[in-house]
Simulated scan of single mutants.
Amino acid sequence: LPFLIGWSKEMCHGGSAQNSRAPAVSMLIYVILSSISLLTMVMNLMIIISISHFKKLHSPTNSLLLSLAVSDFIVGFLLVFQIILIDGCWFLGDIMCGVYFVLDYIFTSASIGTMVLISVDRYVAVCYPLHYPIKVTQYRVQVCVFLCWTICAFFHCMLLMDSIQQPGLYNTCVGECVVIIDFFGGIADVVCSFVAPVTVIVVLYVRIFVVAVSQAHAMRSQVKGAIGQGFVQRVAAKKSEMKAAKALGVVVLVFLMCVCPYYCVTLESGDAVVSASAAAFVMCLFYVNSFLNPLIYAFFYPWFRNCMKCIVTFQILKPGSSDANMG
Rank of each mutant, 00 (worst) to 15 (best):
G6M: 03
S20G: 00
P23G: 14
V25K: 15
S26V: 14
M27T: 15
L33W: 15
L39M: 09
K55H: 08
K55T: 10
K56A: 08
F73Y: 13
L78Y: 09
I86A: 07
W90D: 06
G93N: 06
Y100P: 03
Y105L: 07
T108I: 12
Y123I: 01
V124H: 04
P133T: 09
K135V: 14
V141D: 01
T150M: 10
A153L: 11
F155H: 05
F155L: 08
H156W: 13
H156D: 08
L159V: 11
P167M: 00
N171S: 12
C173E: 14
V178H: 03
G185P: 02
A188S: 10
A188T: 10
F194Q: 09
F194N: 08
V206E: 13
Q215I: 03
H217S: 07
M242W: 05
M242H: 08
K243A: 14
K243P: 03
A247V: 02
C258A: 11
C260S: 15
D271F: 10
A272L: 10
C284L: 10
S290Y: 06
I296W: 07
W303Q: 11
W303R: 09
F304I: 02
M308Q: 11
M308S: 13
V312I: 14
T313N: 09
I316K: 03
I316N: 04
S322N: 14
G327M: 13
